[in-house]
Design a protein around this nucleic acid. Sequence first.
DNA 1: GTATTATATCGTCGTTCGACGATAGACGAT
DNA 2: ATCGTCTATCGTCGAACGACGATATAATAC
Lengths: 123, 123
Amino acid sequence: MTTTAVTRSPSRGVAAAASEESLAAVAKALAHPARIHIVAMLLEKQSCIGCDIVDEIGLAQSTVSEHLRILKEAGIVTGQIERPRVCYSLNPERLRPLADLLKSVLDGDRRGELTGSICCPPE
Amino acid sequence: MTTTAVTRSPSRGVAAAASEESLAAVAKALAHPARIHIVAMLLEKQSCIGCDIVDEIGLAQSTVSEHLRILKEAGIVTGQIERPRVCYSLNPERLRPLADLLKSVLDGDRRGELTGSICCPPE
DNA sequence: GTATTATATCGTCGTTCGACGATAGACGAT
DNA sequence: ATCGTCTATCGTCGAACGACGATATAATAC
């Protein structure tokens, strides 16, 4: 059938869809070199004052602030206010689901043990 | 091997910037629920015929094809042609750098041992 | 040959991203 | 109170994304 059937049974369900959206949201927050740079910087130094990040990244302050907002909104970093500065640090737990998925791929895990329906065998 | 000099000169950059762009590119390819779904599907079944993916995702064939193109272009999946079908499978190695970064965050690694310049101590 | 199936590509359209400057808000120091 | 510093937000604009239908391509089936 060429028309998409509306009555598709959600075999993977709402939970799986929500999980996919959550994983995609984390990946999206990491999907920019400046934000990867910020994460790597926070990994190195554990925590950083915002203005140091601005210096390191080399973009306009408003742009860096926006990247930090995106990372905060995704829950990947937290900002502790120390007026007039803000001290940023990582929230590792937020990265765990994506890290687990990638690790599963690297380890070749078959999560569902549903290996019966392999379309074509790996070479 | 000393990749990171203490200088904050802009020439920190070529290798590190390329790495950040590469990591960001992988994250970007994963930054959509449908593409996460495809990766999870390929993880479960090792490999899949494209039309099965179209059925599972529930978007238009052209849209799914576009998502597969993005994943292929990022090097995350490979497509083996078996006319008229294409058999897709994962390329785990492409995910390794991002997986390593996330693991470092989860493990609390300080990659550069440059812990001297902590702005404010973790709580 | 024609028909069918599976996939890729093209064109379009609305939405979102990413950059910047300008501006506002909140403190500490003077 | 005024200045300087640091951060967040707003408005704008071009570029890229994501969806779709229509179409093109290629192999198989009849």
